[in-house]
């Protein structure tokens, strides 16, 4: 049995060895469900999102929820203190988490969080960026690519206008922000592989 679940969306990384795989899975699911619901509520408030087909709304959320959570919870990863804060509010040291089996994904998440924080985005900018993360026409299984693409372009234009207005002397901010989209894809893929391994070997 796996003894650790190194994900801050869990209450604790320590798993009860007396619990079965499905029990651990159910507890984990219960702990991250409120955060997923918040992502759905956020999506509903994106102008135009509800006009997409139900099928595309679900697929965008399925594909993008991890990335949205990564942006929203970047502050849980403190690279200076070398800690990760879990749902219980308890901080765990990186070395401790490495001992529990955390590897390359944790390094990459720290790197991403630091770069995102370095952009010093306002709440409004972060919100619009999160909408751009979610509404991506190149997610797999999108049935009406044109509609998603049109909404994505509107959101990117709005983000660009806002960033240019708020950071007139930092011309690279918008570009650096768009590059974060690729970083998030990469993190999402790494995370999916970990999830799969966890499901196979809980």
């Amino acid at each position: 049995k796996r003894m650790y679940l190194v994900c801050p969306m869990s209450v604790s990384p320590y798993m009860d060895p007396n619990k079965s795989g499905p029990q651990i899975w159910e507890e984990f699911s219960t702990s991250f469900t409120p955060a997923v619901k918040e992502v759905v509520e956020f999506a509903k408030r994106i102008p135009g999102f509800r006009d997409l087909s139900q099928y595309d709304q679900v697929n965008l959320l399925k594909a993008g929820t991890f990335e949205v959570l990564m942006v929203r919870f970047a502050s849980l990863f403190d690279a200076k203190e070398r800690t990760v804060t879990f749902l219980s509010g308890r901080k765990y040291n990186v070395d401790e988490l490495r001992f529990m089996g955390a590897g390359e994904l944790l390094n990459s998440v720290f790197e991403f969080s630091e770069k995102l924080k370095a952009l010093h985005l306002s709440e409004e900018e972060m919100s619009l960026f999160t909408a751009v993360v979610l509404v991506s026409a190149d997610r797999s299984g999108i049935e009406n690519v044109n509609s998603v693409e049109a909404l994505q372009e509107t959101l990117i234009r709005a983000l660009r206008t806002l960033i240019m207005k708020n950071h007139p002397n930092e011309a690279s901010t918008f570009t650096r922000l768009l590059l974060k989209l690729a970083d998030l894809r990469s993190l999402n893929n790494m995370h999916s592989e970990e999830l799969l391994a966890f499901k196979i070997h809980p």
Binding site: K44, Q54, V58, L61, K62, S192, L195, L196
Partner: peptide, 27 residues
């Protein structure tokens, strides 16, 4: 690889959270 979102039960959570919206809006 297999669909991790479905494995996690994520799709079910998402559908339920969206449901209120879908009830009053034709697809």
């Amino acid at each position: 690889f297999a669909d991790p979102a479905s494995n996690l039960g994520l799709e079910d959570i998402i559908r339920k959270a969206l449901m209120g919206n879908f009830d009053d809006k034709p697809d």
